[in-house]
Design a protein around this nucleic acid. Structure first.
Lengths: 209, 209
DNA sequence: CTTGCAATCTTGACGCTGTCAAGTTATGAT
DNA sequence: ATCATAACTTGACAGCGTCAAGATTGCAAG
């Protein structure tokens, strides 16, 4: 049980969380390329090796940030799914729009989360966070089909189809390949345009003839 | 007119190309995260600042590698499209499979290419290489629909739908989120499994009811 | 042939980075 | 009150990108 917010010079009290907050801010400002443990430490106002003390090394801190990222992703999907209309299909689309919200409003964190190998350790917090996000999507797809999540073999393909579509759109939008989709991502009209394009691309069926 | 392959210690002769080759190899082995100009130089056997002399700085070298990447991507798509069956739809699927071939067999280069902002300068070689790859895809989609590339407004949506689907699958496969799709990507059975999954995900239509 | 110029590549230095070992300070249980 | 332990700092080291300056070579003009 760590006491929060002690004010003494030593024993910050909630330094781990403060460092993660600073790391997320650094990620937002400079992206993963220019990420530096020392700048994170300087932003919090602690010594240059305080981050390594809490996370082991750079990889450890990146992993902790990735776990946060999965939680934020899930929160974005749930928020938009709840705000969606009442049909399961509209709720599935809402989850996809939440996925896009997360990607466009936290580009650095999104790239950090998905630019690294999928978490393998079954009991790790990172893995659990990733699984929770995946299961959210699987449940949304299953609801459209009126069954339990991943009931039959074809169900996995349906989930993967949804996931790859929204993920591909998110990645290409982040890099600027989809015109006017990465500008001012928080604004209401930008979000509306994003939603409309996602719905259109999600439903398009390329006919073999 | 640069003379190729002079053997003197100074004036390597084709050092720019040699450095790019080494950079691509470093990318394959260590990914973009651990990329280092000094290791590239050491691999070629030249001084530590020779790369910067040719490319200005790290960003310049990354950009040159990205241009190479777009060319390789286009080559992969063309190779598989040509090997496809004769219907336009099968040729479109072939391009997508070539896209996946490139991503899975050059993970570092693929991530480098699409993990950076889309090239804005219209006359740059990088931009031209990117446009060529995009136009290849647009033409393949147009062929399915029996028209000229990007003839009507809905055509762009169709191209984006294809692009986001194959790109999302590539990204998620690279990170290991799609089971058994990133292992031994060069082997024939792996490629067959990849092709089958891509075809399935590409064609799946999520029904709103 | 040789002279001078420009391109090519090297050398050395600077500050910034991650990591590690050792030291300092506060916490909480005994 | 004491003391083990956790939290954090300090100092050092090698590797990194970048820049200025120097060394070497090819090439064209005279």
């Amino acid at each position: 049980m760590t006491r929060p917010a002690k004010a003494s010079s030593y024993h910050h009290g909630d330094l781990r969380r403060a460092i993660l907050d600073a790391g997320e801010a650094e990620l937002t400002e400079g992206g993963l390329a220019g990420f530096s443990l020392r700048r994170v430490a300087a932003r919090v106002g602690v010594s240059h090796s305080a981050p390594a003390h809490h996370f082991g090394d750079t990889a450890g801190m990146i992993e902790a940030l990735a776990e946060r990222g999965f939680h934020r992703l899930l929160a974005c999907m749930e928020a938009r799914q709840a705000a969606g209309l009442q049909t399961p299909y509209e709720r599935l689309l809402g989850s996809g729009m939440g996925y896009l919200d997360f990607a466009l409003s936290h580009p650095g964190l999104f790239r950090l989360v998905f630019g690294r190998p999928a978490p393998p350790a079954p009991e790790s917090g990172l893995r659990q966070a990733a699984d929770a996000a995946f299961l959210h999507l699987a449940a949304a797809v299953a609801a459209v089909q009126g069954g339990a999540p991943l009931a039959h073999s074809g169900a996995l393909a349906q989930v993967l189809a949804c996931w790859t579509r929204v993920h591909g759109l998110a990645e290409l939008a982040l890099s600027g390949y989809i015109p006017n989709l990465a500008d001012d991502p928080q604004s209401a009209p930008a979000r509306a345009a994003r939603d409309a394009l996602f719905r259109e691309l999600f439903e398009v069926h390329i006919t073999p003839g």
